[in-house]
């Protein structure tokens, strides 16, 4: 069998470093996903309101996010703002900002779609019981929205996790960067490491994303 170069990971603290890199990726994803879900719910609700100016602003926001490559946004926020506005933000903060900026818009749009798919008469049924708008959203509409949202948002969440590999471009040492460092440090001793190490990174991403998609299947079944 060909040498896959996995042995490199068992030298010194290499594997531990890789896991630490993974944690950096997961941390950025977790924080961004949490922000995206919370603010996405708010933005999604706002998107269903019949205020023209509000709709216009949110529409522009959503389109900017859709058009702009995440990497460009990362560069603007991390490198661009430092000189122009004199902001001294850490790379992690810039990454979380960019990923949340993206996630909130897309999550908001998913929330909007889910709310729209709930029949109008469910609102009326709640109003007829004397509930006000806030209570109706909180107890009746949003719980149903979240149930519909889960399968849709899993796609977005795993995409966000995978896209965190971009943050190494602004100097964050996350799992992919660590993998590159390990491979380069061992270029002479094990030239095959590129295969083995990246394959392990691939597996690590899978291990992070897979439980999320299983959880979604479980919740979907339970709430069906």
């Amino acid at each position: 069998m060909a040498n896959l170069g996995i042995d490199v990971l068992f030298k010194g603290t290499n594997f531990l470093r890789l896991l630490q890199g993974l944690w950096v990726s997961v941390e950025i994803s977790l924080v961004s996903v949490a922000i995206s879900i919370l603010l996405g719910l708010v933005v999604g609700v706002l998107m269903t309101f019949n205020k023209l100016w509000l709709k216009a602003i949110l529409k522009i926001y959503l389109e900017i996010v859709r058009i702009m490559p995440q990497m460009v946004l990362l560069f603007i926020v991390y490198f661009g703002t430092t000189r122009v506005f004199g902001w001294d933000i850490t790379a992690e903060a810039a990454a979380i900002f960019v990923f949340s900026f993206w996630g909130v818009a897309e999550m908001g749009d998913l929330v909007r779609g889910s709310i729209k798919s709930i029949p109008k008469i469910q609102f009326e049924s709640a109003y007829a019981l004397g509930m006000d708008k806030k209570q109706t959203y909180f107890y009746i509409i949003l719980p149903q929205t979240i149930r519909r949202l889960i399968p849709l948002s899993i796609n977005l969440i795993t995409r966000m996790i995978k896209t965190t590999s971009l943050v190494m471009m602004i100097g964050i040492v996350e799992v992919l960067k660590v993998a590159q460092q390990i491979i380069e440090a061992n270029r002479k001793a094990s030239p095959n490491a590129a295969f083995g190490v990246f394959a392990v990174v691939f597996l690590l991403y899978f291990i992070v994303c897979w439980p999320i998609s299983r959880l979604a299947v479980y919740l979907e079944k339970r709430w069906a």
């Binding site: 008469i121 049924s125 109003y127 007829a128 019981l129 004397g130 509930m131 149903q144």
Partner: peptide, 20 residues
């Protein structure tokens, strides 16, 4: 209106129970 609606119960054709 929310106060008044408490005085007026309404039952719909399609029941409109809350499914969750």
């Amino acid at each position: 209106i929310t106060k008044l609606r408490q005085k007026i119960g309404m039952v719909f054709q399609s029941y409109e129970l809350f499914p969750h």
